[in-house]
Design a protein around this nucleic acid. Structure first.
Lengths: 375, 375
DNA sequence: ATAAATTTGTGCGTATGTATC
DNA sequence: GGATACATACGCACAAATTTA
C-alpha cells in the first residue's frame, strides 16, 4: 500500500488506515513495537508531522500506546475492542416483580463471569416508553441488548422499536417472544404448549368442566388460552363459553381482575367448573380467598392450576400446582446467546429457542369429588 | 495570565489550562465563539501549531467544537460534564428476591427521569465478591454508587470495600445500613425500632410469652432482635432464653432454618409462646405449615408477626401482619440523595436518614386465647 | 450573486528538548 | 556518553469551508 497525494483523502488518514490493516494482517501482538516515526516518514515519503498526526489519533483511539524515548507499540486492541464498554442493556416491561427479577439474575450471573454488567431499562409495558428507554440505553454505548417487548396490541414486527432495532449494529436477543423472521434470535417459553399441558393435566386428573381465567390484552396470556382450547379439542371436550373468562390487565402483572371472574364461575352453581386454569400464579392465588368464601375447599371441591411456578405458589397454604416458567434459565440462555453474537462479529448464527414447559405438581389439583361426578 | 517559556510545563498545556479557566470565569455560553487561532497566536505569542495542539486536545476532551471556515466554539460542558456517563452503579447482596427488586425499581424510576441508567452489581452477600463487583462497576465509569453492604461479620468501616470507597471521587450512598461517620450518606430503616414496634404490638395485644426467631449472622436481623429485647425490657417482661431462637442463614434470604426453630418452640408444650416475632416474612410464612401440623390455628392459638411487608404476606391464607419495610421509598430516597451529590460537586451536604417503620396490620395477630390465659 | 476576507484543515521543513537503551 | 525515539515548538504554504463586504 502506498500513500497517494492526489486522493482527496488526507495523507494522515490514509496512513492511519494502512497501519490499522497492517496490525491485523501482520498479526501484531500485544506490546509489539511498530515502525518508528522516522521509518514511517521514509517508507511512505511523508513528513514527520503527518506521521505524528496519524499516530496521535491511533493513540487516542486506543490502538497504540507510545513511550517517549522507546517507541510506539500495538495495544492488542482491535476495532471492536476499542469501542467495547462491557455493558449490555436489559429492557423488560417490569423489573421488580413477576418473572423478571429472576430472569435478570440469570442474565447477570452469565454477564458477571465475562466482566460484563447489566444496564437496566424498564418499559413498564408501554411501547412509547420502550422506545425512549431504548434511546437512553443506546446513549450508554451498550455492546448488546436483551429485550422483552413491551407488547401492546400491535405486532412487534411492525412497531417503531423493531424498526429502530433493525438499524443497529449491536446484537439483540429477544426474550419470551417468538418472532417470525429468520435473522433474529429469541429464547421463549412455548406458552401455547404450556396452556395445553396445564389443561391436559387437569383432564388427565378426570376433569371435564374446566374453566380458563386469562387476560385478553396480553400476548402470552392469549397464547396460554390458545393452548387451553387446543387441549379441550384434542380430548374432545366441548368448549363452553361460560367457562371462558377473559379480563383485562390495565398495567402489567395486575391480577386484580381474577377474583371477580372466579366469583362469576362459582356463581354458576351446579354448572360451575370442577377445575380452573389460571393464566398465572398471581391470578390463582388472589382467587383463593374468593373460593374459600364460597365455602369450597381446594382441591377437594375445585382444582386449580397456575402458571409461572413463582415463589408464592409454593408458600401458599395449599401449595399451588403450576406450569414451570424457567425464568432463570431463559435469562441465562438469552445472555449466552447474546455473548455468542457479540464475540462472533462476522458469522452470526441466529438462535431461535422455544422451551417446552413442565409442570410443578403440588396440592391444588385432585380428581373431581364424588358428589360432583353424580351431577 | 501569560504563557511562560521557562516553565517546565509545555506551552500548549499552559494554553489549555488558561482557556479552560477562561471559559469558566468569563461565563462562556454554549455555542459561544472563542478567539480564533490567529488571535490566540498573537495574544500569547506562540506559533499556530501550538495553538492548534491545545485546541485539538480541548476538542477531543469535549470542551470545544470546531467548524472549518467558521471558528471554534465552547461546547457548554464543564470538567465534570465531559466525564459524565449517566450511569449509576447499584450494588446489593441480592438482586432477584426479598426487598431488592423493589428497591431497584425505586432507584430506576428516579434515575430514568434524569436520563440516567442503573448498572447492576450482585455481591451475593460475599465481601470478596463485593470488592470484585465494585471494580467491575468502576471500570464502567459510573457517576455514582448506591451500595447495600454485603455484610459479613466484619464491621463495614474496617472492610476493604470501605477503604476502597474512601479513595473514590464519585459520590456513594449507603442503603439499609447505618455508618457511624459524619462524611457518608445513608438511607436506612431503623431495624432496632422495627423490632421494638413489632414486639410492642404483640405486647399491646396482651401477649406476655413472646418468642423471637432470627438469624445471628445478619446485621439487620440482629438489630431487629435487639429491638425485641428492648421492648421486653421497656414493658418489664422477663426475657426467657427458651423463647430466643437464633439460626444461621448460609446464603442470603434463606429462611429454611425457621420451621425447625418454630418446631422447637411448639414442642415446649404449655410453656410455648403465645406469639412469635419472625425476623422476616419468608421465615414466618415457611413456618405456617409447621404450626398447622401441630394442630394450632393462626391467630387464635398463636399470633405471628413478620417483617418486610412482602407481597407474599398479603397473599397468605391468613394474611400476615408485618413491619413495613419501605423498599421502594428507600430506593427512591437513596437515588435522590445520590443525584443531589452528583449535581453539587462542591458543597456536598451528607444525608443520614433513618426511617421509622410502621406496621401493616393484617390477620395473624390476636389476643391470647382464653384457655391459654388460664395457664 | 460574486468576490474577498476569514478561519480551520492538511502538509512540509526544521530545531531543540527529554526519556530510554 | 552516545544513539535512538518520541515531545515540544516555530515558520511557512496552500486547501477547503464559511462569512462578509
Amino acid at each position: 500500500m502506498r500513500i497517494d497525494a492526489d486522493k482527496p483523502i488526507p495523507k494522515y488518514l490514509q496512513l492511519k488506515d494502512i497501519l490499522r490493516h497492517y496490525f491485523k494482517n501482520e498479526h501484531y501482538e500485544l506490546g509489539q513495537q511498530i515502525p518508528t516515526e522516522n521509518d514511517l516518514m521514509q517508507q511512505f515519503q511523508v513528513s514527520r508531522n503527518t506521521v505524528r498526526q496519524a499516530l496521535g489519533e491511533l493513540e487516542n483511539e486506543g490502538f497504540i500506546y507510545k513511550k517517549r524515548g522507546s517507541g510506539s507499540f500495538f495495544s492488542g486492541k482491535t476495532q471492536e475492542d476499542v469501542n467495547q464498554t462491557y455493558l449490555i442493556g436489559v429492557l423488560t416491561p417490569i423489573i421488580a416483580s413477576y418473572i423478571y427479577p429472576q430472569i435478570i439474575e440469570g442474565i447477570d450471573d452469565v454477564a458477571h463471569k465475562r466482566r460484563y454488567n447489566i444496564v437496566l431499562g424498564n418499559s413498564k409495558g408501554l411501547p412509547e416508553k420502550e422506545l425512549l428507554c431504548l434511546e437512553h440505553l443506546l446513549d450508554k454505548k451498550i455492546d448488546g441488548l436483551l429485550l422483552e417487548p413491551a407488547g401492546g396490541i400491535q405486532k412487534i414486527e411492525d412497531s417503531k422499536t423493531f424498526r429502530m432495532l433493525k438499524t443497529l449494529t449491536i446484537p439483540v436477543v429477544f426474550m419470551d417472544w417468538v418472532i417470525n423472521q429468520p435473522d433474529v434470535s429469541y429464547i421463549s417459553l412455548d406458552d401455547v404448549e404450556g396452556g395445553m399441558r396445564a389443561t391436559s393435566y387437569l383432564i388427565d386428573a378426570g376433569h371435564k368442566r374446566i374453566a380458563c381465567v386469562y387476560p385478553n390484552d396480553h400476548i402470552p396470556g392469549l397464547q396460554r388460552y390458545q393452548g387451553y382450547r387446543k387441549a379441550l379439542e384434542a380430548n374432545r371436550i366441548k368448549y363452553e363459553s361460560t367457562l371462558d373468562k377473559a379480563g383485562t390487565i390495565l398495567r402489567w402483572n395486575d391480577a386484580d381482575y381474577a377474583p371477580a371472574l372466579t366469583k362469576e364461575l362459582l356463581d354458576l352453581g351446579e354448572a360451575r367448573p370442577t377445575a380452573i386454569f389460571f393464566f398465572n400464579d398471581a391470578a390463582a392465588l388472589r382467587s383463593y380467598a374468593t373460593i374459600r368464601e364460597a365455602g369450597l375447599k381446594i382441591p377437594e371441591d375445585i382444582s386449580l392450576i397456575g402458571f409461572d411456578d413463582s415463589e408464592m405458589a409454593s408458600l401458599a397454604d395449599v401449595p399451588l400446582t403450576s406450569v414451570v416458567h424457567p425464568k432463570y434459565q431463559i435469562g441465562k440462555l438469552a445472555a449466552e446467546t447474546l455473548f455468542d453474537h457479540i464475540e462472533s462479529k462476522e458469522n452470526r448464527v441466529h438462535r431461535q429457542i422455544i422451551i417446552n414447559p413442565t409442570i410443578a405438581m403440588r396440592n391444588s389439583v385432585a380428581s373431581p369429588s364424588a358428589h360432583l361426578k353424580v351431577f
